[in-house]
């Protein structure tokens, strides 16, 4: 039985880690940008951001004032038992979100869409979002928090099979250009692309591709991995760097996730995880122990399975 107190304590620690500490994989990616950036203004901005991460860690202060829209991804091992059940889990995550907002402090960003009511704690109707996944093995629970910026850098479009790769490139460039100008997307960014699924899952896949895969990861399908590389290079050839200034570092990494879609369509979404790529994760074991790590390990062979029944990974990965 996973103790609820461990879940809540870990969730509070994750909120602070996500807000204050830039993940190592993104940091390494941005340092590569700093080395190769040719635009003077863009290079200045990247250097300022690297200084900013140091200031955040030294002061234990949020790296960005925006806070984004804090949310949770939860993966539950098949054998896991949570003290109090899923309702207690959700209450613990909402409490941790509210407490961290006051204590770190974070900006209370969440308001009612019409009445603009602000509870000053980032909790409200549907907030924070909690998304679930399962794993065929394990008695643990993985907690992942992501505080992605909430306004710019994402778009959705229904493409069709006839649009092909050329249509994918066009929509990708259009989105990068639209939100890259003036740096609205706060690039250099981890660009996530969702291809397929239904309209809503296309958005969900793309967002998860940007927020839940580490810089340096590759899609297991070699052709998709090659497309990730191609699109990353294409984005960096726009000629735009940080803040939309002349440069060559718009894309730190490009991740694509796919899902089966309607036979007549090819829905596509694009998402940009920004200079404050706030994500933190930990596994809470049945004995209450928490193990913090960088990689959310969200996309597994099981998560990407294509068959009716789940078989051993070697067989399941074939299709």
């Amino acid at each position: 039985m996973i103790p609820l107190s461990s879940i809540e304590r870990t969730a509070e620690a994750l909120m602070a880690k996500a807000a204050i500490e830039i993940p190592d994989d993104y940091l390494a990616g941005l340092r590569r940008c700093a080395e190769t950036e040719e635009g003077a203004l863009s290079a200045f901005v990247i250097k300022a951001m690297l200084d900013n991460y140091e200031a955040a860690k030294a002061d234990r202060r949020a790296m960005c004032g925006d806070t984004g829209v804090p949310r949770w991804y939860v993966k539950i091992g098949n054998e896991a038992a949570i003290e109090g059940g899923p309702v207690a889990l959700e209450a613990a995550l909402r409490r941790a979100t509210a407490k961290a907002t006051a204590e770190i402090p974070l900006r209370p960003n969440r308001v009612h869409p019409l009445w603009r009511t602000d509870h000053n704690n980032n909790v409200g109707i549907g907030a924070p979002e909690i998304e679930y996944a399962f794993d065929p093995e394990g008695d643990w629970i993985d907690l992942i928090t992501v505080h992605k910026g909430g306004l710019f850098g994402s778009d959705y479009r229904m493409l069709f099979p006839g649009d092909g790769i050329e249509g994918i490139r066009r929509f990708y460039l259009d989105t990068l250009l639209a939100f890259g100008k003036r740096g609205l997307a706060c690039q250099p960014a981890i660009v996530g692309i969702g291809l397929g699924g239904s309209k809503d899952t296309s958005m969900v896949l793309g967002k998860q591709a940007s927020c839940l895969r580490v810089v340096g990861s590759r899609h297991p399908d070699p052709k998709i991995a090659a497309l990730e590389e191609e699109l990353k290079d294409l984005g960096n050839r726009i000629g735009m760097g940080a803040m939309g200034f002349v440069g060559n570092s718009l894309v730190v990494a490009c991740h694509i996730e796919v899902g089966y879609c309607h036979t007549g369509g090819m829905p596509m979404s694009v998402h940009m995880f920004c200079l404050a790529s706030r994500r933190a994760c930990a596994r809470v074991h049945a004995d209450g122990r928490a193990e913090f790590r960088t990689d959310p390990l969200w996309f597994t062979d099981y998560r990407r399975r294509a068959t009716v029944e789940w078989k051993v990974p070697a067989e399941a990965a074939a299709e």
């Binding site: 991460y53 925006d66 803040m243």
Partner: peptide
């Protein structure tokens, strides 16, 4: 600049 030099 950045954007998001929130700590600085």
């Amino acid at each position: 600049v950045g954007y998001g030099t929130g700590a600085l």
